[in-house]
């Protein structure tokens, strides 16, 4: 993307976790200079590509993903009301992902980070919360028609909850309609095989990579 020096500075400060500097430029562009809000959000996505790359390369870790999410939320809250109705058509999404923590488990930190990373990578994500009963997954899937279903769980009891949930997808005749990925602190290949999921991921970037590969988007 071609960028002027100010735009380059915004991307650099966002990617380098320099929050004060990044927000100052974003506010100036949006509130004083009348910059196109869609352009500013596009710059944010460019910066997030750099953040994701640094995460994959082992330079960045969870704290950087969390701060990046905060910076994007702040800029988004300023930019979105400035978008004119006729410009506001939703950009083409890569695919739809439904995500939730399986029944019996209340943990959500990992799920929330996966949701954020999928969102900024161009997926439409519906997060249906924690301790989600099997029947709720089924109802939500019927209504939302996702390409990928993400099951999250931190406790060892989640192994059986995931297995039951995926078995219920089979019983409802919908298992082949979407891919299933699982993730959480204790998840490994043994658990993937036990639950019947298509794949597991150990972090949010892996989840993005799985969804991209399944929806045909270049990883």
């Amino acid at each position: 993307m071609d960028m002027n020096p100010q735009e380059e500075a915004l991307v650099k400060h966002l990617a380098d976790m320099e929050e004060d500097e990044a927000l100052e430029i974003a506010k100036r562009m949006l509130l004083e200079e009348g910059a196109d809000p869609l352009r500013v959000l596009e710059l944010c996505r460019t910066a997030m590509d750099v953040v994701g790359k640094r995460f994959e390369e082992g330079e960045y870790f969870l704290p950087e993903l969390v701060l990046a999410g905060e910076m994007l939320d702040t800029i988004g809250a300023i930019a979105k009301p400035l978008i004119k109705q006729d410009e506001g058509g939703a950009s083409k999404k890569l695919g739809k992902v439904l995500i939730g923590t399986v029944h019996g488990d209340l943990h959500d930190i990992g799920k929330n980070i996966v949701t954020f990373m999928l969102d900024i990578n161009g997926f439409e994500v519906k997060d249906i919360g924690v301790d989600v009963p099997v029947a709720t997954f089924i109802d939500e899937i019927k209504a939302y028609e996702p390409d990928v279903v993400g099951l999250s769980g931190f406790l060892t009891l989640a192994f059986d909850s995931m297995k039951e949930t995926i078995a219920a997808f089979e019983a409802a005749g919908m298992r082949s309609d979407f891919k299933v990925m699982i993730g959480g602190g204790q998840i490994d290949e043994t658990v993937r095989a036990y639950t019947g999921a298509d794949a597991f991921g150990v972090n949010a970037v892996e989840a993005v990579g799985l969804c991209k590969s399944w929806t045909g988007a270049a990883a």
């Binding site: 204790q186 490994d188 043994t190």
Partner: peptide, 9 residues
């Protein structure tokens, strides 16, 4: 010994 092994193995 891993939890997945101990619970499902």
């Amino acid at each position: 010994l891993s939890p997945s092994l101990m619970t499902t193995g």
